[in-house]
């Protein structure tokens, strides 16, 4: 704030937000859906960070996850299939003061939106991307997605999926300018919250792949991991997530991983069992597109008008005297 008095006035009028302030309507996701846990974690974060409602924008594409903006009492943009990221980039470019969350699914991001995804990583614009990965197209009732496991029987692959699934973590870590990559699972809310919070504070493109259950179409997909906590490996580090004593009693499979280590992050990303959970990579030094391309000064309407008049005058043919 330029005027010191503004800070004082804002502090005086500071009103605490409750989690209900960020809620809008009743989610229409299926009961038991992992999307609920992600929504709750984001709402908790907004409350804890005291983010003004009008300073948040949630952007989504198409899919179950893309109903996310409807359930946030903030600005939202339910855009086209696969186009959440370019819309979010436009918002961030024009309004860098807004906090941008992108909710996208495995189909929305890794299939039709794959080109935007790759370039969004490269642009490294400051936004928090939540990739809800239930490994199935749920909204259209069970078609195979790019992350579906090999052999998965679906309405489009009745004999089983033919291809190995795409690994979003490895793909993201392979793109230049990558700056933040994490993996979470919806069934460990404490870690999910921590990861989203750290992604939010990271200045750059924060990509979180969140493995989530689809109780309707793939109810047993993650059952082995739910039943056996040792099949989840928590990545802990002073610069990553901190595993609480309570959590450590359940999840004993821990690995100390420095998020600055890109090579090790790539190794970890390639492992699917046990599921690595935590911050794989973080580099705050990567330049951000919105900063690189930010104008060196602000143009007021009067300045724009004066500039245009000046340019136009160059081509004006003045009548002869």
């Amino acid at each position: 704030m330029l005027a010191p008095v503004t800070e004082c006035l804002l502090r005086l009028e500071d009103e605490p937000y409750g989690i209900d302030d960020y809620r809008s309507g009743v989610p229409r996701w299926c009961t038991g859906c992992g999307d609920n846990a992600i929504l709750t974690a984001v709402q908790r974060l907004c409350r804890d960070e005291k983010l003004p409602l009008e300073k948040i924008v949630c952007v989504s594409g198409i899919g179950c996850a893309s109903r996310f903006p409807h359930y946030m009492n903030t600005y939202g943009f339910h855009s086209l299939h696969g186009r959440a990221l370019p819309v979010a980039e436009g918002i961030k470019m024009r309004r860098p003061d807004l906090h941008v969350f992108v909710a996208t699914g495995d189909g929305d991001c890794c299939s039709i939106g794959a080109a935007h995804w790759i370039h969004a990583i490269r642009y490294n614009m400051d936004m928090t991307v939540l990739m809800h990965d239930n490994q199935i197209y749920g909204l259209t009732k069970k078609q195979v997605s790019p992350t579906s496991p090999l052999g998965l029987r679906s309405n489009t692959t009745p004999r089983g999926a033919y291809l190995e699934p795409l690994n979003p973590l490895s793909a993201t870590l392979g793109v230049s300018n990558v700056s933040f990559v994490a993996q979470a699972v919806d069934w460990i809310p404490e870690v999910l919250y921590q990861i989203i919070a750290q992604a939010f504070h990271h200045k750059g493109f924060s990509f979180i792949r969140i493995l989530q259950r689809c109780p309707e179409f793939l109810p047993d997909l993650f059952e082995p991991w739910l039943q056996d906590p040792d099949k989840v490996k928590l990545l802990s580090h002073a610069d990553g997530i901190e595993v609480s004593a309570g959590l450590a009693k359940t999840y004993k499979n821990l690995e100390a991983h420095d998020p600055a280590n890109l090579d090790r992050a790539r190794e970890i990303a390639s492992v699917t069992d046990p599921i690595p959970v935590g911050i794989l990579y973080r580099n705050s030094a990567v330049p951000r597109y919105e900063e690189i391309r930010a104008p060196d000064r602000t143009f007021t309407p009067a300045m724009v008008k004066a500039g245009l008049e000046k340019e136009m005058d160059k081509f004006t043919i003045w009548p002869a005297d």
């Binding site: 009961t31 038991g32 709750t40 809310p189």
Partner: peptide
């Protein structure tokens, strides 16, 4: 409670 994923099963 700390491990609840807000899935609405019980509240429903």
């Amino acid at each position: 409670t700390a491990r609840c994923t807000t899935c609405n099963e019980c509240t429903d």
